[in-house]
Every structure is written in C-alpha cells, then in structure tokens.
Design a binder for these strands. Structure first.
Lengths: 130, 130, 130, 130
DNA sequence: GTGGTCTAGACCACC
DNA sequence: GTGGTCTAGACCACG
C-alpha cells in the first residue's frame, strides 16, 4: 500500500507520513485503525526502524495518530482540523510551486483546474456519496 | 524584490530560483531583461556569491535564462515550454501535497478552488487583460 | 581508474563526469554499482569534496546515476537514452571539431574512419562478443 | 557566413576560429584569400575588436593564416599539416566525447558512422571530384 | 566588468 | 556513515 521511492529527494520518513495521510483521506485507513508496529512496518518495507519511528513521531506530532503505550499507534478518532497561519502558508506554497511549474510546462488555467479536479476526485472521491 | 526565508528548509538557492521564475510569470521581470550580476546580487542579498551562482546555473539549466560570456545573465526571450513525464509528476505531487494538507486544515473543495483561483490571478493576472 | 589532467582546460568535475560515463560504457563500472563516497573519492584523488560533489550532481542530473539518501551514489540500472535536438547538435559539434582538426593534421577520410573504429572498439568492444 | 552563438559556452573567439577553418576546408575561403581587417570584421559581426583580434592571433598561431604587416591577414598558401602527439590526442578526445555522448543518446555504431559520413561529405564534399 | 572553477572548512538532515 | 548546502576567499578566461 505504501510506495516509497528511495531515490526521491523527499526524505523517506516524510514519504511515509504523506502516504499514510493520503490513505486516511482516501478511506483506505480509517479512524481508530491500528498502524503496524514500528518493527513490523520496518520489516514489511525493508527499511530502517529508525525511519519508521521518525515517520510515526511526525504523524503523532500532527495529531493524525495517537500512541497508546503498550498497545500501539492508532489513527486519531477525533482529529480536529486546525488552521494556523503557518500551515496556511505552507499549503499556499505547495500550490504556488505547482502553478509556477505548470505554467513553465505550458499548462493553461484550464489544464491546472483539470489536474486539481482529478486529484480531488482521486483523494476524496470515495466519500463523495455522503 | 526577492524574499528569502533563511529558516526555511528549502535551500536558499532554490528559493531564489523560485522567486525569479515567479517574477517572470508576474511580468515583473521580462524576457531579455538582465539579471543583476552574481556579485551584485550577492551584495544586495548579503549572501555568498557562490549561492547566487548556483541559483543562476539552475535557472540556465532550466532554460529560463541564458548567459552571455562577459555580459551577464538574461531572461530567455524564446522560452519553449516542454512537458516531460517527470516534470508532470512533480507538479502533480505539489498539488497533491497541497490538497492533502488543505483537507487536514479543514478546507472544503470550494476553499481549495478559491485558493487556486486567487493564486492564478496573482501569478498571471497582470497579462489577463490584453 | 580515473585520470585527471589538471592542466587541461576542461574543468576537473567535467573530466570526472566523462571518465565515469566512459567507464560505464566500457563495462568497468556496472549498473547498480556504488560509486565511492564523495569524501572517499576526494581523498583518493586529492581533490576537494566540493569538486567531486559537483561531478556527482551532474551525473545524477543526466540520469547516469541515482543517489539514495544516506546510502550513496549508484549507477542507474534503468538508464533510458533520450535524444533531444540539443544533445544531437552537441554530438555533431564534437565530431565536426574532430574532423576539422583531423584534416588540418593531414588525415584522410580513411584515417578518420580508422580512428573512429578503434575508439568504438575501445569503448564497446567488451560487449561485442555476446 | 560566420555564425556566432553568443550564449554558447564555447568562447566567441574560438567559434570564429572554427568557422574560418571550416570555411577553408569547404573551399568557401581559399588559400591566399585576404580576411577582412579586424575592425571591419568587428563591425560586420558587431563584436568587440579584441575578440576578432584574439581569433586572428589564434589562427596565425596555428599557421592557418599569415599576417603581412600593413597588408592584412591572409589564408596560408603553403599550409603543411603537422601531426604532433598533442594534437592527435585532442582529436581523439573530440571523437571520444562524441562517441560517448552518442551512445548515451541511444546511437548504434551504424548511426555514428552515418553521422561521420554525413559530416565528411559536408566538409570536403566540394573537392570530392579531384 | 562578467560568469566559472576550485579549495578549505563548516554545519545539517537523513538513514 | 551518506550527500547537500553555505561561507569565505582565491584565481582564471572572456569580452
């Protein structure tokens, strides 16, 4: 389920964080679900346990997961979205970089909207029916 | 004109590249314009000339600028957009990360479209009226 | 294995790039092989690590190598040749310069073909027999 | 007749040298012909006279031209090809770089011979009938 | 004046 | 351990 590109410039632990957050949005992983243990995950993905550990810590820091001592790591059931100024700028930056690069690839506004639309569908399409 | 965030995890030279590409899109810098010399820019931004040099070389590698020996670095007059598969994935990734983070901030689809729209206006709004 | 001519007008980092690409063609270095670390290579060649770094980054930019974070730099296993117009012109230029200079040395057509043949053998002769 | 690319990494004076040597091979300029004066050439090509001067000096150093004080610069009538070891290595290097890059573009041996053949025709085709 | 290369030495994030 | 970034300062070729 989790695809890692070892040659990417994005750190592996960050790729894991992204993939898990994406999996939750898509409904593949649900609130309350237990994540595999650090060791288990490390073995599955043939990665250094320290890398998984760092990913889990980051997820917890973002309140996406909670860790219960002795039980494991679970997807938060009561995740409360929080807009802080910093996060908002970060999102803007992602979009801005995307748009700038898109323009330099010859994209038109419509192409950009098209891509956004397709990504929105991919990420939340599952729950579209509620 | 160029804002650098020294605390950002994005390397300084990359921030410079982004800012210049953005400035060109916005029409603040125009094709044919000369960029400040490496030393001049370094002094202006109180950065090491090597850092500017790296940014300029990356811009040239991307064909955003051309350098003329002994004269300086200029914004390309004949930039030809090219879509390669890799670049396309990169853009998709930027947007995907933006959308995922936006959802985790509590954004709705409309909020995302709103932000994209505002960014598109900011980046290309100047030329929209001709 | 890598021979550097410090007196050459060709930059050292570029000589390194060329030598490594040549080594791969000759089969001396194989896809998947790890290159010496930047520091190791720098020590071996008594060069500054930054110089090696620049060579390695250029190799990666050309997709000749990939780097895996924390592990090192490796020869690409899946190198996909791509002809772009610009590269084609570059190759033509190399050959043209070679031919012009050859004529000025008194070479005949046969001599030129002879030299090309000998170089082709040298560069790919190893795999010729499979 | 002389095409200069100001954005090329090849120095302008060197491009001039190459173009003139090529023109002589092609028979466009003939032994005994007078080259335009430095100032004249500089005005024609809108280049700095120093650049032309440097090109002419290099041509003379290579014995491709001779300068007669007060009369001007002329294409040598009695050019004697000289193979020195150094020149030979230089030619080999040009060809080697061309071949290496050609292989990395996906060229086969035949493609390389094809390109060489086409260049030979282009450069000496005119005199093929003697 | 311009950009390009190189050295020396430092600090950092990642695995 | 690995590569990546940055500073400081030097030297060079080119126009």
């Amino acid at each position: 389920m989790i695809n890692i590109d070892a040659t990417s410039s994005t750190p592996i632990y960050e790729q894991i964080v992204n993939e898990i957050k994406e999996g939750i949005l898509k409904g593949i992983i649900e609130p309350g679900d237990k994540l595999p243990s650090v060791r288990e995950m490390a073995k599955m993905m043939t990665l250094n346990p320290n890398t998984i550990q760092k990913a889990y810590q980051e997820l917890e820091r973002q309140k996406v997961t909670v860790t219960i001592r002795g039980r494991g790591t679970f997807v938060s059931e009561d995740y409360k979205p929080r807009k802080d100024e910093e996060k908002l700028m970060e999102v803007r930056e992602f979009f801005k970089k995307g748009i700038v690069e898109a323009y330099y690839m010859g994209f038109k506004e419509e192409d950009i909207y098209e891509m956004i639309k397709s990504l929105l569908k991919e990420l939340k399409g599952v729950e579209e029916d509620d």
